[in-house]
Design a protein around this nucleic acid. Structure first.
Length: 643
RNA sequence: GCUGACGUAGCUCAGUCGGUAGAGCACAUCCUUGGUAAGGAUGAGGUCGUCGGUUCAAGUCCGAUCGUCAGCUCCA
């Protein structure tokens, strides 16, 4: 038997018989790896596990722990689900069914409207089919054969996909699993039997090809796992996410409200919510001042001239609140702060010596979002951007971007977010500004990230029409990713407003303009913060930091003195004078997630001390008030939640 | 805006076959004055989202409308 050399995942090289399958190799390395293996790459190309290898090759093996393995697993499950739907609803026509980062979905068109109860039926069918352990078999057809197949089936969606495929693609691959065949590039699991635990999560509408002019299909989302424990953990995470929902916690902790009778998507900040917001804004202002920014204020409305010049009226009019007409002039609520900052820039002639200018504003803007998109604090109609604009000369852009990146890292760290992902978005098809400028700016974004040693992902063509950008996504405590910061070049507004500065050469130059928001919007940021901490805010952000709890009315005077002392030191404290038993009060402050309680009664009054109780940890023993103050002030200043 | 589900007390929810509304929490008053996660009694609180229809009778059935939610589309 002829021998071939295989470079294994760990880098070592071993010899195998020619024609050995990927699975056999995996088994020879480790039995466990073989049973966990989902997909392999042979010389960089994804292959099924039963692929035979005939020549010297590099082999990589992916398990469910890898993104690629996971995606394959979920993609195969989406085929399995489509199979089950086909069995239950033979008239079904299918759209697309990819794996996504949180599972998979499949879009299909059937006459009956599915409900959540129907999902159980489909799940059951899926388990039935999975048990048959039908192999996923790859087949290749010509474009014509493929088209004929779906014409016969009457599935116009698949026909549309095929007819749009490149003429040059000679063969079209199909995957067949039992009685179900689907257009697909693969790869797939070896057989349906590998799919052990499935949960279908929701059913909803979705437009064919994501275009709202097209017919709406039904989409089922689901997830699957090879092990029961993994499924249970995932479902527990979803439950935890529900418990942390900022809308629910916002109500429970009395942070904010929305009054639909007064206007959907407009936030009312209650005293406790406002404390959190003020703490954030105070920190933000101080940090910006220390980092070389000047703070601005600008008006909330502006005449139509401003928005015609900026281009907002022609691009976003349907998302702006209707104008107020005064003295035959139209005034609009601002959807953006930028034009105001530009007017300040243009207030006098600028020299290259003035640059860079870094101007920041917590600017409240109003955008008329469509009714179906509003969502608690996360998507609203009035919000405060932590906005800033940097005006600089071309040779300064890279340094400026580096500074913004460093600053944003500092900002996210301060709020307890460590996992950040960076995306660089490049020139879209429709864009303003010439290519050379785009290239220069895009390079400066990439260079800045590289020089800070940060990895980034490229989003080709994902930039705004007016410039390339860096987006930062942050992961919260539940590993959910939120798009928060954005750093964007703008080649549009400086042009439209004819901005300039006088250079060293005595000539006029166009400044570079960078928009950046680190937290995004304060509303959205607080929403994410609530969910990140699950309402258990670290000491420096907590809206109530200390509750003073007298054991009975006899000790109200002493409790009042303790309370006054805390207030004098700038602590958010509450004095609990309710006529309730101590156990009741302790429970109440615990469920309201207050970091510290000071219990005071006879003992404490006599000794001039306080009994400290910490949230979730219980009794911490007796301390003098000074000792306690020292401890919590240290906690607040160092922005730590535990000492 | 689109598809679907849901709107009952401040909050969380029950209300069967159509027969004029119920609980817990919160709130008020009183009793109780306490030692680390819910003491007791009493009371107040609702045009059942809104409008129309069917019916002797509608929270319940039908239609429209407004809103919320899950997604889709959108997000300067």
């Amino acid at each position: 038997m002829e021998q071939i050399k295989i470079t294994l995942p760990d880098g070592s090289v071993r010899e195998y018989d020619k024609g050995v399958t990927v699975f056999e190799i995996a088994k020879s390395i480790s039995g466990r790896l073989a049973s966990d293996a989902i997909i392999a790459k042979v010389n960089g190309a994804e292959k099924d596990l039963d692929t035979k290898i005939d020549e010297d090759s590099d082999l990589q093996i992916f398990t469910f722990r890898d993104d690629e393995g996971k995606h394959t697993y979920w993609h195969s499950t989406s085929h399995l689900m489509a199979h089950a739907i086909q069995e239950l609803y033979p008239e079904a026509k299918f759209g697309v069914g990819p794996a996504i980062d949180t599972g998979f979905y499949y879009d299909f068109d059937i006459d009956t409207r599915l409900t959540e109860e129907d999902l159980e039926k489909i799940e059951k069918k899926m388990y039935e089919i999975a048990k048959s352990a039908a192999p996923y078999k790859r087949r290749e057809l010509s474009k014509k054969e493929a088209l004929d197949y779906f014409t016969e089936k009457g599935d116009e969606y698949k026909q549309e996909i095929i007819s749009e495929l490149d003429e040059s693609s000679e063969v079209i691959s199909f995957y067949e699993e039992g009685a179900f065949t689907d257009l697909c590039t693969g790869p797939h699991l070896a057989d349906t039997g590998k799919i052990k635990y499935v949960k279908l999560l929701s059913v909803s509408g979705s437009y064919w090809r994501g275009d709202e002019k097209n017919k709406q299909m039904q989409r089922i989302y689901g997830i699957s796992f090879p092990k029961k424990k993994m499924l249970d953990e995932h479902l527990e995470m979803l439950e935890e996410a529900k418990r942390r929902d900022h809308r629910k916690l916002g109500k429970q902790l009395d942070l904010f409200s929305i009054h639909e009778e007064a206007g959907a998507g407009l936030i009312y900040w209650h005293p406790k919510g406002a404390r959190i917001r003020n703490t954030i804004e105070d920190f933000w202002k101080e940090a910006h001042t220390k980092n070389g920014y000047d703070l601005l204020f600008s008006p909330h409305i502006g005449k139509s001239w401003l928005w015609e010049t900026s281009g907002h009226l022609s691009n976003f009019r349907e998302n702006m609140f209707s104008p107020m007409s005064i003295d035959e002039q139209d005034y609009f609520l601002k959807p953006m702060n930028c034009p105001f900052h530009i007017l300040i820039y243009k207030n006098h002639l600028r020299s290259y010596r003035d640059l860079p200018l870094r101007w920041a504003e917590l600017g409240t803007v109003y955008r008329f979002e469509k009714s179906g998109v509003l969502h608690g604090l996360l998507r609203v109609r009035g919000f405060t951007q932590d906005d800033a604009h940097i005006f600089c000369a071309q040779e300064q852009i890279e340094d400026e971007i580096i500074e913004v990146i460093r600053f944003s890292l500092f900002m996210w760290k301060s709020f307890g977010f460590e996992k950040l992902t960076f995306y660089v978005s490049t020139r879209p098809d429709k864009a303003v500004g010439d290519d050379a400028i785009w290239d220069k700016a895009t390079e400066s974004l990439k260079n800045a990230l590289r020089s800070e040693g940060l990895d980034y992902k490229l989003d080709e063509g994902g930039g705004a029409f007016y410039g390339p950008k860096i987006d930062i996504k942050v992961k919260d405590a539940l590993n959910r990713e939120w798009q928060m910061s954005t750093i964007q070049f703008d080649f549009n507004l400086p042009e439209r407003f004819d901005m300039k500065y006088i250079g060293e050469d005595g000539k006029e130059h166009r400044p570079f303009m960078v928009h950046r928001a680190l937290l995004g919007s304060i509303e959205r940021f607080v929403g994410v913060l609530i969910e990140h901490f699950g309402g258990d805010f670290p000491m420096w952000l907590a809206p109530v930091q200390v509750a003073v709890v007298p054991v009975s009315q006899k000790y109200f005077d002493y409790a009042g003195k303790v309370f006054d002392e805390l207030k004098k030191n700038g602590i958010f404290a509450e004095l609990d004078k309710r006529n309730e038993k101590i156990g009741f009060k302790i429970r109440d402050w615990e469920v309201n997630k207050v970091p510290y309680m000071l219990i005071v009664g006879e003992k404490e009054e006599e000794a001039g001390t306080v009994s400290v109780r910490k949230h979730k940890e219980g009794d911490q023993g007796v301390k003098t008030l000074d000792q306690f103050l020292e401890r919590i002030i240290h906690e607040i200043n160092n922005k730590v939640s535990n000492i």
